[in-house]
Design a protein around this nucleic acid. Structure first.
Length: 260
DNA sequence: AGGGTATGGTAAT
DNA sequence: TTACCCTACCCTC
């Protein structure tokens, strides 16, 4: 689920569903007791997404940091909600909606300087209006690691995960093994622009879709939405998709389209 | 019941 | 590099 598009969509949805109401905050699993105690009865005033991180700004002045990791998810239901089932780290119950968080890597209150430390190790996030593409170009220009590894490095660019990595490099016909700093400036800009466009599409659609929808089609089936990720044949040329490993994740690329 | 897998990341070695 | 953490789901036995 969670690459950058998921995070920014959650920020938007949670703001819509929960902002301004006094929330009942509980820690059903018993693993976020301190945060729940501090925040219970308070209101969410704003929510920021940075890459794959969510920052909830509360009326108490506190910031709650959530990182979903690989398995984390939010489940929404109408208030009053069923008693929590399974392992729920946090429950936010408002007048209309109740949201449960399960499986996050992080769910914690930030110290005063924790946010600064977090932002210092994140590259620019193409989904943010205040993002600076030149910082991304600069970051790429000084990395000798492959571009396929650089795109997963959150200090180079924030918000890209394993699906977007494969899809971005594919639509630009870039060999993932190519050293990041050897990309031309035009190519690096194209990577940024493509990332920004794909992520924004992901926010709108609530899932990752990188293929154009044929006229008349309602919704692309799963397996038709992507070009190479988890496919055997490339959606563009029909050629074989190879599966390798880069940055400890499975990397899919088209032998034909993405030759070095 | 148990194993493998997943769109992520950190800390120790 | 490796070990480890987090949860749900799917497959096989």
């Amino acid at each position: 689920m969670p690459e950058g598009h998921t995070i920014h969509r959650l920020a938007r949805d949670h703001l819509r569903d929960l902002r301004g109401e006094s929330l009942t905050v509980t820690s059903p699993q018993g693993r976020a007791v301190q945060a729940a105690t501090v925040l219970d009865g308070a209101r969410i005033e704003a929510i920021d997404g940075y890459g794959k991180h969510l920052l909830y700004r509360w009326s108490t002045g506190d910031t709650l940091h959530v990182h979903l990791g690989l398995y984390g998810r939010f489940i929404r239901q109408r208030t009053p909600a069923e008693p929590p089932r399974g392992l729920k780290r946090l429950r936010l119950a408002g007048d209309r909606w109740t949201t449960d968080l399960s499986g996050p890597t992080a769910c914690e209150l930030f110290d005063p300087d924790a946010e600064e430390r977090l932002l210092a190790r994140l590259g620019p996030d193409p989904l943010r209006a205040d993002a600076d593409p030149d910082r991304f170009l600069f970051n790429l220009s000084r990395r000798r690691i492959p571009i396929g590894a650089a795109l997963l490095d959150q200090s180079v660019i924030a918000g890209i995960g394993n699906v977007y990595r494969a899809e971005i490099l594919h639509v630009l016909a870039i060999d993932p093994a190519r050293p990041a700093r050897e990309l031309s400036e035009a190519q690096a800009r194209a990577v940024w622009d493509t990332a920004a466009r794909m992520l924004a599409d992901g926010v709108r659609q609530g899932r990752i879709v990188t293929q154009a929808k044929p006229p008349g089609a309602k919704r692309l089936a799963r397996g038709e939405a992507l070009h190479v990720y988890r496919r055997h044949a490339c959606a563009t040329c029909g050629g074989p998709v190879t599966v390798g490993e880069m940055a400890s994740r499975r990397l899919f690329s088209c032998v034909v389209c993405q030759q070095g």
